[in-house]
Design a protein around this nucleic acid. Structure first.
Lengths: 157, 157
DNA sequence: CACAACTTAGTTGTGCACAATCAAAATGCC
DNA sequence: GGCATTTTGATTGTGCACAACTAAGTTGTG
């Protein structure tokens, strides 16, 4: 029972440290977004979709999925909720009936002004300077790429 | 409309960078765990519970919740699934009938040997040296603490 | 003792994530 | 043209997360 100093069985804890830290941090950030987004009646994934649309309106579901790394199983019901909330429209394309183009409504476009105060709250909450934030973002991106590459080599899609 | 260089409206993208990176990295890591844990028939949150129990058997639901920052709404059904899989037992305490103590079964204890190869895969997948991993973990912990403190000051529980 | 306040789990309902499957439409190749 | 293949999105089912609520048990106080 005194195995917590060893490398072998103890590593079942130690190696998990970053993963669990990542998991906890991600949930904490989502939780803060939940508070900040409550007045806008948006969830964090819905907010991400709105960010993508505020940047480029009229994207296909496929394009949104590529931008956010989400598949249609997640996006389809999410987009229907945004439609029901009156923030977007979902139109089949005339030239390719398979694809659905997502367009901001007036309300959807207008919501952007309400969202503009959010980033400064997030920045203040994190409490890192911009240089550190940038380094962390780069590390996250590298981590995502490494992990995805490893997984794909493991379970060849 | 040429606001993407400014701090104000353009920051709707820039300030979100770390959050989105965190969100993506967390999902990527979970996805790798899904692959690695498939032979053990565990999800990542279930694996976290098992890690906690392998470290300290016979914990209350409350203690597991404190260790993993999960509430009973998440843990209760998860623990029932682990019980159904034959990995744990759930017993009301005689001295305090409110609390439920989670105990590893023989199968639950034995599963640990199958899990021991996982951390090295995770370490290889991340591709950072141990010092960097430690720094990132510390940064994640600080981030979680800052964000939670900010959120609590905002929505005083 | 009586009873309010608190603690501990469980339940319900909503909304992601994601695997697996399906259907419809477009494309490529003969 | 005819038909297999691919693309695009939707659907179904499972399992987290989490808010809100409930139920049961315990504790503290007069």
């Amino acid at each position: 029972m005194t195995d917590q100093d060893h490398g072998e069985t103890g590593s079942l804890l130690l190696d998990d440290q970053l993963c669990f830290g990542l998991y906890s941090a991600s949930r904490a950030v989502t939780s803060l977004y939940r508070t900040l987004l409550e007045p806008l009646d948006l969830t964090y994934p819905q907010y991400l979709v709105m960010l993508a649309l505020w940047e480029h309106d009229k994207q296909q579901v496929k394009e949104l999925g590529a931008a956010l790394n989400l598949d249609s199983g997640t996006l389809s019901p999410l987009l229907k909720r945004l439609e029901k909330a009156g923030l977007v429209r979902r139109d089949r394309q005339a030239d390719d009936e398979r694809s659905v183009r997502i367009t901001l409504t007036e309300d959807g476009t207008a919501l952007r002004s309400k969202a503009e105060q959010i980033p400064s709250h997030i920045g203040a909450a994190m409490g890192f300077d911009n240089k550190t934030l940038g380094r962390m973002r780069a590390a996250m991106d590298q981590l995502t790429a490494s992990v995805n590459a490893y997984r794909e080599s493991f379970s060849p899609a």
